[in-house]
Computed example of a mutant assay.
Amino acid sequence: MTAVEELEQEAYDQNIPVDYVKFKSDHLHGLYIDGSIAIHSGLNAAQTADTLAEELEHHYTSYGNILNQHDTVCRKQEHLARLRAYDRRVGLSGIILGYRNHCHNLHELAECLEVSEEFLNEALECYREKYGCYTELDGYVIMFEPHLAVVEKL
């Protein structure tokens, strides 16, 4: 089962309709509104899965209309949904998986994790903000500065 199929199944199990539509703006990839998810129909599989994961997280964490990103409460809800989507699709364990699979650059890591490069870059920036220069997990040090690197602790 592909990532998109798994996420669609999760939406189905949660009684969340998912519709694929052509948005007027190519910048808008997805929208969660009134218990339904709309996904831009022109996205590739990785972008679709990235967007569907985020919109599902809006279902789990957001309330009300959060389109006004000048409002602090709306921004916080958006940030939480994105962080949870990044953790779901990338996560620190995904970065380690990429290291174990000998990924040498962000393009290879994105392919390994089946995420878009844009989504991966956003996730890494979010992790830099959350963890600072580095963090540790399961015997690995993941460094975010000056660039992404993973080192196995001895």
Score class of each variant (00 low, 15 high):
residue 1 M to F: 08
residue 2 T to P: 02
residue 2 T to Q: 10
residue 3 A to T: 13
residue 3 A to C: 05
residue 5 E to D: 14
residue 5 E to L: 12
residue 5 E to K: 07
residue 5 E to T: 08
residue 8 E to M: 05
residue 8 E to Q: 09
residue 8 E to T: 01
residue 11 A to E: 03
residue 12 Y to E: 11
residue 12 Y to H: 15
residue 13 D to E: 15
residue 14 Q to S: 15
residue 16 I to A: 09
residue 16 I to H: 00
residue 17 P to S: 12
residue 18 V to M: 12
residue 18 V to T: 08
residue 23 F to C: 09
residue 25 S to I: 03
residue 27 H to Q: 13
residue 28 L to A: 05
residue 29 H to S: 06
residue 30 G to H: 03
residue 30 G to N: 02
residue 31 L to M: 11
residue 31 L to Q: 05
residue 31 L to Y: 06
residue 33 I to R: 04
residue 33 I to A: 13
residue 35 G to K: 07
residue 35 G to Y: 04
residue 37 I to Y: 04
residue 37 I to A: 03
residue 39 I to Y: 01
residue 39 I to M: 02
residue 39 I to E: 00
residue 40 H to C: 04
residue 41 S to Y: 11
residue 41 S to D: 15
residue 41 S to V: 10
residue 42 G to E: 15
residue 43 L to D: 04
residue 43 L to F: 01
residue 44 N to M: 07
residue 45 A to S: 14
residue 46 A to R: 09
residue 46 A to C: 12
residue 47 Q to A: 10
residue 49 A to H: 03
residue 50 D to I: 07
residue 50 D to W: 10
residue 51 T to Y: 02
residue 53 A to L: 02
residue 53 A to S: 15
residue 55 E to W: 00
residue 55 E to V: 00
residue 56 L to G: 01
residue 57 E to C: 00
residue 58 H to F: 01
residue 59 H to Y: 15
residue 61 T to H: 11
residue 63 Y to Q: 08
residue 63 Y to K: 10
residue 66 I to L: 00
residue 66 I to T: 07
residue 67 L to F: 08
residue 68 N to A: 13
residue 70 H to Y: 12
residue 70 H to A: 09
residue 71 D to E: 13
residue 71 D to Q: 09
residue 71 D to M: 06
residue 71 D to W: 03
residue 72 T to V: 15
residue 73 V to Y: 04
residue 74 C to F: 01
residue 75 R to Q: 12
residue 75 R to F: 05
residue 75 R to N: 07
residue 75 R to E: 06
residue 78 E to L: 09
residue 79 H to E: 15
residue 79 H to T: 13
residue 79 H to R: 14
residue 80 L to K: 12
residue 81 A to E: 10
residue 82 R to K: 15
residue 82 R to M: 10
residue 82 R to I: 06
residue 86 Y to M: 03
residue 87 D to W: 06
residue 87 D to H: 09
residue 90 V to M: 07
residue 90 V to N: 05
residue 96 I to G: 01
residue 96 I to C: 04
residue 97 L to Y: 08
residue 99 Y to G: 07
residue 99 Y to E: 14
residue 101 N to E: 14
residue 101 N to W: 10
residue 101 N to L: 10
residue 102 H to L: 09
residue 102 H to M: 09
residue 102 H to R: 14
residue 102 H to W: 11
residue 104 H to N: 15
residue 105 N to K: 15
residue 107 H to N: 14
residue 109 L to E: 05
residue 112 C to T: 06
residue 113 L to Q: 08
residue 114 E to G: 03
residue 116 S to F: 12
residue 117 E to I: 12
residue 118 E to N: 12
residue 120 L to Q: 01
residue 121 N to G: 04
residue 121 N to L: 09
residue 122 E to Y: 05
residue 122 E to Q: 11
residue 124 L to K: 10
residue 126 C to T: 13
residue 127 Y to I: 05
residue 128 R to C: 10
residue 129 E to A: 14
residue 130 K to R: 14
residue 130 K to W: 13
residue 130 K to P: 12
residue 132 G to N: 11
residue 132 G to L: 08
residue 133 C to G: 14
residue 135 T to V: 12
residue 137 L to N: 03
residue 137 L to I: 11
residue 137 L to T: 05
residue 138 D to Y: 13
residue 139 G to W: 10
residue 142 I to D: 01
residue 143 M to R: 14
residue 143 M to N: 05
residue 144 F to P: 00
residue 148 L to C: 08
residue 149 A to W: 08
residue 149 A to H: 06
residue 149 A to F: 08
residue 150 V to H: 09
residue 150 V to I: 14
residue 150 V to L: 03
residue 150 V to D: 06
